[in-house]
Amino acid sequence: MTHRINRRTRLSFLGDYLGLLGVLALLVVLCSLTTQHFFSLITFRTIANQIPDAVIIASGMTLVLIIAGIDLSVGSLLALSAAVLGVAMVNWQQPLVVALLLALATGLGAGLLNGLVIVRWRLPSFIVTLGMLEAARGAAYLATDSKTQYIGSQIEAVAEANILGLGLPFAVALVTVLALQVLLTQTLFGRHLFALGGNEESARLSGVRVERVRVAVFTLAGGLSGLAAIIHCARLGAADPNAGIGYELNAIAAVVIGGTSLMGGRGSVVRTLLGVLIIAVLESGLAQAGAGEPTKRLVTGGVIVAAVIMDYYRNRERL
């Protein structure tokens, strides 16, 4: 019985990606037809330049949603990590490496705190990370004195570095996605995540150390926000305490478009990457078509819901 299900899952594996890839291809065609300069290397390079931080944050969010949690603090943690990075370089005159490590440590630390509070008092992650969303934003304002810290060429070198023709940030994002996908599908830890998201009690009974897994996932999500902060700062050459507002919702949108269930127990990081790409192509196309802000938001909102509706029908067919 299990054997047959496995085989069917494997067969539909490619189909899984094909659906999303189809939507993506359709969007690219639509945008190319409606705007003059969309279908060009520059556009795709621009998109590749814009999305790495979003990809990294959404990857972390995928793990959190798989264990049926939610992390609303990722945008604020990005701002806080960026603030630490900026202050370390501008005010404390620290070398780049030290500043980068401090930014990562900030994200990891805050994520760890999220996880520990959630587990210690058995609180819903929604509430705890909502608190962190506020607190980390406040801390970011405090650290920077509410001022944008201009860092300049030192940090921009990170964005300009190349690996095999790919920008370093984009390469880092791809490696993150692949590493997390391997973690999810090929390791015991990954199986524990799905077990915990599917049914916490039975996971606990079958020997999964639920608390540890949960703390690890929130710590990882925090650390990935720190990594995203570094890439965000590198792209802009500056650390802005108002950075990342609303990123948590964009990440959730991308993850859900990628078919990860908000109820937990199901999801894939590669599909999340496709989700981020779909939103990025859409936004880029609309901006180039000169669409106004209201149109952009209407269309983006519509596409998010439409993508999830499509996913619903595809899942029903499979059952």
Binding site: T35, Q36, H37, F38, S40, I42, T43, T46, N49, Q50, T148, H232, R235, L236, A238, D240, N242, A243, G244, I245, E283, S284, A287, Q288, G290, G292, E293
Partner: peptide, 21 residues
């Protein structure tokens, strides 16, 4: 186009502008 006073949004909007123009 608007970027709502924000740095990251302006970055995105201007990237689109220079591709289209």
């Amino acid at each position: 186009q608007t970027a709502n006073w924000e740095m990251a949004q302006a970055n995105q909007v201007v990237s689109g502008m220079i591709t289209e123009h």
